[in-house]
């Protein structure tokens, strides 16, 4: 019965307090010695990382060239350039990669909000799910399996997130003639211009197009976007304010490209009928 369990765990805790009182040792100096050594190790490791970060940077140890631990800083933020791969710090890679697994619009909410929220609630609930007083690991098979699953999946997701490759704009621009041939817009200067912007502006960091691109945050495939015949005006409105047209969309605004460029992009999208 529940009351028995409550009485039992109170008894165990009372026993714990008695045992500590009778055969424990004072925190100072025994445990405090361990804590002090460990704290010193932490400070040394942090200082070491800072030194490696700086002194492994090539040249005069300044600027944007990456050393062993990455760049000291990147180019200044420019809301007008879109040729940039959004990448969080490494400890968010597992979430970052989760967003590649779920597809817009049906399941992306699972990846962005659903799963992380469920995990957080589960984590808070751990002491209320596992209410037995048993602490020995070998007698807690569920806890063992759960912890192995969590460590392995976080590890795999972090690794996949770290090694996920995004193509650079310059490599993608070379594909524009192929796209034009497949989609049949070779004669359309507006669409060709739009294709070049599409390649350079980081659209493929999230979207996919004719087998290329990121598939991030559930961004849809755009190979046959034009087949939906939404119209150039719609495309421009969407590019200016994605969330306004498509509530809940995580896509950033591309208003910064300017009206003329947005028109080209929209023409390109409307000319993309999926090819043969």
């Amino acid at each position: 019965m529940a009351t028995d369990r409550i009485a039992e765990r109170r008894r165990i805790f009372k026993q714990y307090k008695d045992d500590v009182e009778s055969r424990g040792k004072p925190f100072y100096p025994f445990a405090m010695f361990h804590d002090t050594v460990m704290s010193l190790v932490v400070v040394v490791v942090i200082t070491g990382l800072a030194i490696v970060w700086k002194y492994s940077t090539p040249g005069d140890h300044i600027g944007t060239d990456p050393g062993w631990l990455g760049k000291l800083y990147d180019d200044p933020a420019d809301p007008g350039t879109f040729n940039f791969v959004p990448r969080p710090d490494w400890y968010f890679y597992f979430l970052f990669y989760l967003l590649r697994i779920f597809k817009w619009p049906d399941t992306v909410l699972l990846g962005t909000i659903g799963l992380p929220t469920v995990l957080l609630v589960l984590l808070i609930a751990v002491p209320f799910i596992d209410v037995r007083p048993e602490r020995r690991l070998l007698r807690r098979p569920v806890a063992i399996v759960a912890s192995i699953l969590v460590v392995v999946s976080m590890g795999v997701l972090t690794y996949k997130g770290a090694t996920a490759k995004e193509s650079l704009g310059s490599e993608l621009v070379a594909k524009v003639p192929d796209w034009a041939k497949t989609q049949g817009f070779s004669g359309n200067q507006q669409a060709l211009g739009g294709a070049k912007l599409f390649a350079e502006s980081g659209c493929l960091n999230c979207h996919t197009y004719l087998g290329l691109g990121g598939g991030f945050a559930g961004a849809p495939d755009l190979s046959a976007e034009g087949a939906k015949n939404k119209g150039i005006d719609f495309q421009i409105r969407h590019l200016e304010n994605p969330a306004g047209v498509n509530p809940g969309s995580p896509m950033p605004s591309f208003q910064g490209l300017g009206t003329a460029n947005l028109k080209k992009l929209a023409t390109f999208l409307e000319s993309s009928k999926g090819g043969k």
Partner: peptide
């Protein structure tokens, strides 16, 4: 306030917004 910072945050905020 560099490119890495800016664009990761844009996407991060948009994800919160969903």
């Amino acid at each position: 306030w560099d490119q890495t910072a800016y664009w990761a945050t844009v996407v991060g905020i948009n994800i919160n917004g969903t």
